[in-house]
Design a protein around this nucleic acid. Structure first.
Length: 384
DNA sequence: AATGGGGTCAACCGCTCGAAT
DNA sequence: AATTCGAGCGGTTGACCCCAT
């Protein structure tokens, strides 16, 4: 079954010959590539113009097919436009890098895939000179297997055998919520942020950062978002439109610290927030819009959750890679004392580097490592 | 040397989305 | 508002290559 664009035509399929490549390159150099459907036709275009005015509509259809066949023969490209487009984008484009992927590229793919999932075209935008097809093939043939070998689910980047521990973790959250008077929820994530997926204009400069998105919480007294990153005045921003993986967000201001102690603070980010990291976001809770100075919203890792409690909190994440380490640093830099006693962090999926950062940050914050397997970086628990 | 299995990657398929009509 | 069409995307296929037997 062929493309509907070429079902009427006897188009060639399969691998491209060097001659076909040459003809396609030649055509694109001369005419550009604004309309792929015209690529195989245009070499015979003058013939079409000279005949078509003379034909009735029925006759035109019949004869134009014949003419099209002639045109294709003249052009020497018996390919449909779709095939031409693909060949150009994936193989002939002069800005393609080719060759094997570097370790850095591999890491970028893993990082971005963790956030975006199988959105190959988006991932490829972070790898200059690479195509979505290339990235997809590399993922399927190489990275996927590496992750599986490391015991990670390539879809979720969670531990393959982690469903049990995650369920345990989520149960712990529910138990703790219940303990402090919160109704148990079927959803482990205490809140969600919904960005304006439709209607968000990437080309527009937004000045008010918190417009257009909604923040929903099923829990009471949730009025603030604590960014999980460095308390440095700038917030690393994951920007899928940039060529680099992250840029700094200027003018970031953290919530007043008394907000953290006076109000229960929950934090969780949906991946979709990251997908629209430059989208202005408005947080509204219980029908009341919060005022925030966030210019952007950002995460470097997915689905991270802060969970407060009257005498402490738990920092439980289903993915604690670099985001987890960043959270730990954030704790180190002044927030721990406002959150009382009892810190717990699930670092099941942190890298070794993350673990080092976590460890030093927690130790500096006065916490002590009390449980879990540091060798496997699994179910690590810290208390202070 | 022949063969078969696994890996790689170019190309195709089918679908969605948005613009044009 | 409905329809058509093209561009673009992710999933899948299959040809080709390499290597072990």
């Amino acid at each position: 079954m062929g493309h509907h664009c070429c079902t009427k035509q006897k188009v060639k399929r399969g691998l491209w010959s060097p001659e076909e490549d040459e003809k396609l390159i030649d055509h694109i150099i001369k005419h550009g590539y604004n309309c792929w459907s015209t690529v195989p036709k245009e070499a015979g275009f003058s013939l079409t113009l000279s005949l078509s005015p003379l034909l009735t509509s029925v006759l035109f259809d019949l004869i134009s097919d014949c003419i099209q066949m002639l045109e294709l023969t003249f052009a020497g490209l018996q390919r449909c436009g779709k095939s031409c487009r693909l060949r150009w984008i994936n193989y002939l484009r002069p800005d393609l890098k080719r060759g094997s992927f570097s370790a850095e590229e591999e890491r970028t793919i893993i990082d971005v895939h963790r956030i975006l999932g199988n959105r190959w075209a988006q991932i490829a935008k972070h790898l200059p000179g690479r195509t979505d097809n290339e990235v997809k093939n590399f993922w399927n043939s190489c990275i996927k297997k590496k992750l599986i070998a490391q015991g990670l689910d390539p879809k979720t980047h969670n531990l393959l055998a982690s469903s049990r521990s995650i369920n345990t973790m989520n149960n712990n959250i529910s138990d703790e919520l219940s303990q402090f008077g919160y109704a148990q929820s079927a959803h482990p994530a205490p809140f969600t942020i919904s960005p304006p997926i439709k209607g968000f204009d990437k080309t527009k400069q937004y000045t008010n950062s918190l417009d257009h998105c909604s923040f929903n919480s099923s829990l009471p007294n949730v009025e603030a978002i604590l960014p999980p990153l460095l308390n440095s005045g700038t917030l690393p921003l994951y920007d899928q439109t940039a060529e680099v993986g992250a840029i700094s967000m200027p003018n970031f201001q953290y919530p007043q610290e008394n907000m953290i102690s006076e109000h229960q603070l929950l934090m969780g980010f949906e991946d979709q927030v990251i997908n629209n990291s430059q989208a202005p976001i408005e947080f509204t809770t219980n029908g009341v819009s919060s005022s925030s100075s966030l210019d952007y919203t950002s995460m470097s890792s997915s689905s991270f959750g802060y969970q407060p409690a009257a005498s402490g909190f738990s920092c439980l994440g289903d993915n604690a890679w670099d985001g987890g380490a960043m959270e730990a640093l954030n704790l180190k830099q002044g927030h721990v004392e406002h959150l009382g006693q009892g810190h717990q962090m699930d670092a099941s999926y942190a890298t070794a580097l993350d673990f080092d950062m976590l460890e030093s940050a927690f130790l500096a914050a006065g916490a002590e490592f009390c449980n879990g397997s540091s060798a496997a970086m699994e179910n690590l628990q810290w208390h202070c």
